[in-house]
Nucleic acid binder design. Structure first.
Lengths: 404, 404
DNA sequence: CCACTATATTCACAGATCTAACTAACCGGA
DNA sequence: TCCGGTTAGTTAGATCTGTGAATATAGTGG
């Protein structure tokens, strides 16, 4: 093997698969089923190399032949279809947010095998306790799903807030002030005895978005809204993380000079003006009935979204106002990243995305830089779980996942 | 050789050097002089590989041994220093802006051998004429500098405005409306009989910025101001171009809802509020004496900057107002890209950078996401030529440049 | 002059991937 | 039914790249 660069000195983006083995696994995984010929086209490798690599993958039990492809056109040998052996390995993804702890168990093919949603620890809990709870619940998830623990490759853990790459949280959003400096990753590895990976929620969501569009999108971004607002950039299936793992902090770009103060210390931040917390605050001020939601978290935001969707005009006005601001963030993403596709994801868009989507689309279309190149804006149908799934998928793509 | 991927289907970023040969050339070039031991550390290759590759480079005349390094510490054989043979090859970089045509001849070591600045063609000229002029003047530059034409590897050409990757301009800024759809790159290749490369000015500037800081900066961005405002992201020496080659269009992010209309069709664009043209317009409105500058181009902006620097308080106020807006753009870059370093470059910053720099620094520092990770903001001392130099360097890093 | 140290090279080998030639499987018409 | 046409995949041999172990090279300090 060659230059196994330590992730701590990685150049700010999750590098493209280096070995042919990883490359081929990746391509089969994202295509679902694929023949060897198609692999030669997709990878640029020649047929004999594909044959050799695939044989080893089959020997190792990671890939299986699964019938014949359609006889194309005039004649000739039909293609032998290859598929990832889903049951070969598993990974766990965990998304910690203010309201919830979301667990997913993902198989080697990238499919979600089990999903578990629990009430979040809130902001008053001790990080050590939360981490222990995550470890216990992870074990429980694996046990209950009947998967052999030995086949679980690792755990991807995502949370909001600026991170020190793979270490822990630096300065933190309101819901995570107690986490600053806590060594999340190493504690999880110790407790679970398996590799762990720590990532920003929005970045992971970009990795977790399934591209339903068959167009080959190599440059896409996710706009993620949970308690905060963030974004992630994905290049050919690999997420861009930035120098310190905090790229895509679109929630803290300034969209109004002299605007309201944000918890981050800035003023006029997008998140402070239009994030879920701001929406909830406005709704409270307007006297809307939000039920019994203590927090200003996503649960309260969801209540407002439901009101808006059921015809409450005051709620709708508040959400639409938020959308107008967030559209500026979307435009910024399109201009800065020059993506082919922008996906709206995360719990907040999962409940209110249908209101936001057209407003964001309209704004993207009305900018030359968007219009001339045709940036598409779509809603992720798995918004609730995208971050957790993305965490799992990132672990699935790490070096741990391609060994025999 | 393997997967020689066509640049048109490249994944949106200039990929890292694939062959060891290119990697080693690149490392020696950016370090200036380097020993083989250092190369093993920097590249991850083992000593024998470095020896072998370096020997071939020496045989091919691209690299030369240049004396001994300092005897480190206790004893031992001193390092043999390696250096790029500057005279081995050359490349030309051309920057087309509204006011000027800037040519640079760059040697194989990345040094600027010749520099030529000519009055720009203005906005009324026919693209075909301009391209022919560029071809002629390129030949003239090479001839006058006494460099063997056969050693010139190619030409990098940069201009403002959204591009179709390596083809031509799509929708265009005011000064380039006639260029839309013109096949810049292929015409240059035909006229000159050498490979050409077309790039956005800001993106090229990111490639052209020399890192004086010895800290190893792997993720940096350039904020570029000429007639417009743009930015470029550089990852480990490779520029990020986006899906269509238009990443970093920070000039067209919206920083004021309902703000003034921009030529791009949007409203409240940073460029419309605070770009050189806006500054010139404000200065005209304020009755400042700008001399005989017809255009609203960089020349007129430079006149205002000189007034401001010489103590004219009205001019200074106008520039400082521009800086306050552009600081928002800088903050956006820091948040979206998560860079270690932001360099201010381009003709406009070359004349007015000392006014802008402290204002931008202050704003970056006042955001948590900037402060906690320490994004540095500096001024490029070669701002005038950064785009042209970057164009040349990008050509120098292309596949054409590493063959024997 | 002799340890000692750091730098660089040689040599034999392992692995990946290439080209070229071959086998496998299926179509359709004589 | 058999045979050329066509596409898919394999085998065999060559090449290239990088590796580990041992060795050569060129200084320092006693």
């Amino acid at each position: 093997m060659q230059q196994v660069s330590d992730s701590s000195q990685s150049p700010g983006y999750d590098p493209a698969p280096t070995s042919s083995r990883a490359l081929i696994v990746d391509r089969i995984r994202s295509a679902g089923t694929l023949s060897r010929v198609e692999l030669t086209q997709l990878t640029g490798l020649k047929a004999p190399s594909v044959t050799a690599v695939v044989r080893r993958l089959i020997d190792d039990g990671l890939v299986a032949e699964t019938g014949r492809g359609t006889s194309t056109s005039i004649g000739g040998k039909p293609r032998t279809l290859l598929q990832i052996r889903a049951a070969a390995r598993y990974v766990v993804g965990v998304h910690l947010s203010e309201d919830h702890l979301t667990y997913v168990l993902v198989d080697y093919a990238g499919g979600v095998v089990a999903r578990w949603r629990r009430d979040g620890p809130g902001d008053e809990s001790d990080p050590e306790q939360v981490v222990e709870r995550v470890a216990n619940e992870t074990r429980e998830l694996i046990a209950r799903s009947g998967v052999d623990q030995a086949l679980v490759l690792g755990l991807g853990f995502v949370c909001p807030g600026p991170l020190i790459r793979n270490r822990g949280v630096t300065s933190a959003p309101p819901s995570m002030t107690r986490w600053v400096g806590f060594p999340i990753r190493s504690r999880l590895e110790e407790l679970l005895g398996m590799p762990a990976l720590l990532e920003n929620d929005a970045t992971a969501a970009a990795a977790g978005t399934r591209l339903t569009t068959s167009h080959d999108v190599s440059v896409m971004a996710a706009l993620f809204m949970s308690e905060g607002i963030g974004s992630g950039l994905r290049l050919n299936g690999n997420v861009y993380q930035g120098a310190h793992g905090n790229a895509g902090e679109v929630g803290h770009i300034c969209v109004q000079i002299g605007g309201p103060r944000c918890w981050c210390g800035g003023t006029g931040c997008l998140e402070a003006l239009a994030g879920p917390a701001a929406v909830v605050e406005k709704a409270r001020a307007a006297g809307l009935d939000l039920g019994s939601h203590r927090h200003s978290g996503v649960a309260a935001f969801a209540a407002i979204a439901r009101l808006a969707l059921s015809g409450d005009s005051r709620a709708e006005a508040i959400i639409r106002d938020s959308a107008a601001w967030i559209a500026i963030g979307a435009q910024t993403i399109a201009n800065m990243y020059d993506v082919q596709l922008l996906v709206l994801t995360g719990p907040a868009f999962a409940v209110a995305g249908t209101i936001y989507l057209p407003i964001l689309q309209e704004r993207i279309l009305s900018s030359v830089f968007g219009r001339s190149v045709g940036t598409e804006v779509v809603l992720d149908e798995r918004g609730h779980d995208a971050a957790a799934i993305g965490a799992a998928l990132m672990m699935l793509k790490s070096e741990h996942a391609i060994s025999a």
